[in-house]
Write a protein that binds this DNA or RNA. Structure first.
Lengths: 129, 129
DNA sequence: CTTCTAGATTGACAGATTTCAAAACAGGTG
DNA sequence: CACCTGTTTTGAAATCTGTCAATCTAGAAG
């Protein structure tokens, strides 16, 4: 056995109901257009720092997190964090809002759900094989 | 190239039960180690061609697809397809097996489920948070 | 053994990505 | 207003990616 279950590994989505989702399992293979539309979101998730950033935002109290809180705990500079937040923002995974001095980010749950639904359209729990 | 309906947007996982999954919603923020481990898989999904490749494999009859079947329908060269399949393979998303002359690939459902579970740990349907 | 086909690997190159330092910008406060 | 702090933008360098042409390897068929 080589697969041990690491610790708490979750990105925790806070709310919502899917909508912009997609057809359930067994459907037709994805179209080029859809692939082009969806790939960027996964690409944005494809970086350890962004994954952690997203996770911290999702797990934060109230479902949102201030940039100043996110910057601590990472070994990269402020501008780099800002850059990653921008990537996540442009991928539609998070939304930012400025309140006075600070900027708060929150996860766009529907987007996350849509991506998850794409990976397991009908739920992998049944199966047969 | 003829364009069928673009409605069906799904990658269709064929089988299995999750296992190497992760904690449900609301857990602790993901660790750096976990982020580093998981990011590559999302990164592999972050390319339109790989997304389509994965989808076609998943939707294929019997849950597996021959490389020779995958190569048609893409505008990139054979080596490029081979490269993408390698990326997906190294990300643990697919597995390949040679049977005589041809090589067949199938989706590693547990991996897909694990990734999906990370995005919506508890299921976004009743988000109590 | 030679030849053929299916796939993978190597080498090269344009373009994208990550990262930081420095500068710019946005809001508070004195 | 000047000044300070929090966040984003710009500029530039190092690294990584996607792609193809050419080459190589694994089985199957002569």
């Amino acid at each position: 056995m080589s697969k041990q279950k690491e610790s708490g590994t979750a990105i925790a989505v806070a709310t919502a109901t899917v909508d912009l989702s997609c057809e359930p399992l067994g459907s037709q293979s994805i179209s080029t257009a859809d692939a082009v539309t969806l790939a960027p979101a996964f690409k944005a998730l494809g970086d350890p720092i962004r994954l952690q950033l997203l996770s911290q935002i999702a797990c934060a109290d109230g479902g949102e997190s201030c940039v100043c809180d996110l910057e601590v705990g990472f070994e990269v500079s402020g501008p780099t964090i800002s850059h990653h937040l921008k990537v996540l923002r442009e991928a539609g995974l998070i939304e930012g809002e400025r309140r006075g001095t600070w900027v708060y980010y929150r996860v766009v749950a529907e987007k996350m759900s849509a991506l998850a639904a794409l990976l397991v359209p009908a739920g992998s729990s049944d199966a047969a094989a």
